[in-house]
Design a protein around this nucleic acid. Structure first.
Lengths: 141, 141
DNA sequence: CTAATTGCAAAAGCTTTGCAGCGCA
DNA sequence: TGCGCTGCAAAGCTTTTGCAATTAG
């Protein structure tokens, strides 16, 4: 398992250091519904795991991971950024305003329409962010 | 014209004060492509207009306007918030990564798909943000 | 060995808040 | 007149940076 992490880091041109490995493992060990962590979240997770890594290093490493394409940074509402391991193809997010839960989804038709719209205005898409803020729908019984 | 602004403020339960009127007018006087202003932008526009309003007041007023539904706050990438006068129906945004220009658009089909997706997951949409980051498409000559 | 990396603390934005004085209704 | 509003300066947050010490390759 460390093998895989080593490879990922090296491919990104990053030295394999303890803080970087630990942070990668924290992210990997998270279940999908808890994937979205702030720098502070990662920092606390490290402390809880007994690994003493400075908060500044957490920020630096997450930023490096982002540039290396290992991680995505999102700016949901509320001031701070959240990070998410890139595990496969692109997806968008739904955030429950009551529980804070984050659900991922992907809709090819929306993706297509986005490209069409950008083209219609003479642009091509470099990236996009789409976040739906939702609340549980009362289930009719 | 002040009449209209007065009414808007009163309806929002806000006293009609000079700073609030001035800020409202700054926003109203902006062409559509320049609608998206940071608090700092608004602050500078006020100074340039010779109106001495504190930055803290700008923040307070914009926040009040947001809560009153007169203004929308967006968190585009890059740390700070931008504010936009609510002039009518909802729309989404396209931000040119080269020029910083913001283009507004609306696509009923995307809106519909968003609702369908939320429902499929047992939620209803409270709000959403969709930002396409784009670059000019080389025009074939 | 040498350059990259880390930790700490300090600094840097952006935004909010406390408080005394001013102004609208 | 009275409560709400404003300005200023100070505090709060998240994030970044400078620098000496440490570590990977």
């Amino acid at each position: 398992m460390d093998r895989k992490d080593d490879a990922g880091l090296k491919k990104a041109g990053l030295k394999v250091t303890l803080p970087r490995l630990k942070i990668l493992q924290i992210l990997e060990s998270r279940p999908e519904e808890r994937q979205h962590m702030s720098a502070e979240d990662v920092y606390r997770a490290l402390l809880e795991a007994g690994d003493d890594v400075g908060l500044a290093t957490v920020y630096r490493v997450l930023t490096q991971f982002e540039q290396a394409g290992l991680v995505e940074r999102h700016n949901f509402e509320g001031g701070h950024s959240v990070f998410e391991l890139v595990r496969g193809e692109h997806h968008d997010h739904m955030v429950c305003v009551e529980s804070g839960r984050v659900i991922e989804f992907f809709d090819p038709e929306i993706e297509r329409l986005q490209r069409v719209i950008a083209e219609r205005h003479g642009f091509s898409i470099v990236g996009h962010s789409m976040v739906l803020y939702v609340k549980p729908r009362p289930v009719p019984d």
